[in-house]
Design a binder for these strands. Structure first.
Lengths: 221, 221
DNA sequence: TCACTAATGTACGAACTAGTACGTTAGTCA
DNA sequence: TGACTAACGTACTAGTTCGTACATTAGTGA
C-alpha cells in the first residue's frame, strides 16, 4: 500500500490532492478491515490522517463510496501481483503448484484484503456491483491457470475435465479460509492455521491437494 | 431454528419466557447475519419480535451478549447435526466422501450460520472467547474423521501422514468458501458457486479432491 | 501580480442508537 | 384468594455518527 510521509511545512498546510487521497485510502483500509463497514467510523478515519473529515467527503463523496474505493485499490494490488506471475516456463505440475503457492503467500501477506472481501460478502458484493472498475477487471491468474491446464491436459498429465474457474476457486478456498477463519478455527480447535511454524506444512498441503486432484484417476467411480 | 407461532390471546399479553427468548434469538440471528454486528440494530430486532427491546436487555443483557447467544445456538445446531453422523459402517473412502458431502450440505443449508462465522472472524472470535459454552464444546465430526482416518491408514488405503484437524480444515474451507464468498466470486468471475444446477458438480468436486489427496502417492516429491 | 479555483479547515446539526428508569400485569403458590 | 415475583411495556436520554454550511488559503495561469 502506498504510505506517505514527508516533512509537513512548519505552519501552513501543504496541498497535495494525490497524497491526501492516498493517505485517506490507507487509513480507511485499516479501519474498514478492523471493524467492518458499519463498525468503521468516518471520524476515526479522519482523525488518523493528517487531514479532516471534510476531505473524505470532498474526494470520495461518502462512507459508501470510500469503501468502494478501498475495495478497488485492494483488488488492484492483487491484480498487479497476478500480472507478474511467471510460471509458464515450468512443467504443468510444477507450474500449478507454484501458482497455488503464490496465492497462498499473497493471502497470508494481505490479511486486510481478506477481511475486506469477507466484509464485502456480508454486504452481498453490492459495492463491487456498483463499481465500474471492479466489474470490468478480469483475473490475470485465471488466464494463467487456463493455459497451464490446457497444456497439462494435452500432455495427459492432468485429468481432462477440470475447469480453470473451478480450480481457482479450490485454491482460493483453501488460502482464504486459512486466513479469514483463523480466529474461529483457532478458538474451536485450538490450532492456529497461520502459525509460522506450520506455514510450510500448510503450503505443501495445498500443493499436494491440488496436484492430487488434477492427476487423480477418476475412472473407478 | 426454533420458530414459534401460536394464537396470541385476543387482548392480554401471554407470558412465556422460553418462547420470548427463542423468538428474540430467531430474529437476532437473521438481523446479525444480514448486517453484521455493528450494522445490526437492536431496535430492528425488537420491532420484528412480538415483544419489546426491554426484553432483549432483560434476557440477554446487551447487544454483545445477544450476539454471543446467537452464535452459541448456531454452533449448537451444527454440533447436533454432527452427532447424527453415521458413516462408520462404510469403508474409509466412502465414509470420508460421505462426511464431506454432509458438511457440504449443511453449509449450503445454513447460509446465516456461515455469515455469522464470517462476522465473528472479523471480530477475531472475541465472542467465542467470551463464551464458556463455546469454549468447551468439541467437534463430534472431528472424532469421526479421526477414526475413519485411522482405519484408512491402517489398511493402507490412505497416505499415512494426514491429520484429522487438517482434513477437517480442508473440507470446511471448500464448503465455507463456496457459500461465504459466493457474492464476490460471482461478481468477479461471473459464476454462481451456489447455482443449484452446479450443485452436484461441486459436491463431487469436493469428494474427488479429498479422496485424491488422501490416496495420492506422495513419494515422488 | 492578481484573480481564480482546487484544496482545505471549523463548527455544527439532525438523526440515529444502545441502553435504562419506572411503572404494570400475569401467573403461581402458600 | 391474596401476595409475591417473573415477565413485560412505555417513554425517555445521553452519546454518537454521518454529513454539511460556511469560511479560508495555497497554488497557478493569464
Amino acid at each position: 500500500m502506498t504510505s506517505v510521509d514527508e516533512p509537513a511545512r512548519p505552519n501552513g498546510r501543504i496541498r497535495d490532492a494525490a497524497r491526501t487521497k492516498a493517505e485517506i485510502l490507507d487509513v480507511a483500509t485499516r479501519e474498514f478491515a478492523r471493524a467492518g463497514f458499519a463498525g468503521a467510523r468516518v471520524d476515526e478515519i479522519a482523525a488518523r490522517t493528517r487531514t479532516t473529515k471534510r476531505m473524505i467527503y470532498y474526494y470520495f463523496g461518502g462512507k459508501e463510496q470510500l469503501f468502494t474505493a478501498v475495495l478497488e485499490r485492494a483488488y488492484g494490488v492483487i491484480r498487479e501481483a497476478e500480472q507478474e506471475l511467471d510460471v509458464e516456463h515450468l512443467d504443468p505440475v510444477a507450474a500449478i503448484r507454484r501458482l497455488a503457492e503464490l496465492t497462498f503467500d499473497h493471502h497470508e501477506q494481505h490479511p486486510d484484503f481478506i477481511r475486506l472481501v469477507s466484509i464485502e460478502n456480508i454486504h452481498e458484493a453490492e459495492h463491487i456491483a456498483a463499481s465500474e472498475e471492479l466489474g470490468r477487471i478480469g483475473s490475470p491468474a485465471l488466464d494463467v491457470i487456463r493455459r497451464i491446464l490446457e497444456s497439462g491436459q494435452k500432455s495427459g498429465l492432468f485429468t481432462a475435465d477440470v475447469d480453470a474457474v473451478d480450480l481457482h476457486a479450490m485454491i482460493s478456498a483453501f488460502c482464504f479460509f486459512r486466513v479469514a477463519n483463523r480466529h474461529t478455527f483457532g478458538a474451536l480447535f485450538g490450532r492456529d492455521l497461520v502459525d509460522p511454524a506450520q506455514r510450510e506444512h500448510y503450503r505443501n498441503m495445498l500443493g499436494d491437494m491440488v496436484i492430487a486432484y488434477l492427476t487423480a484417476d477418476r475412472s473407478e467411480d
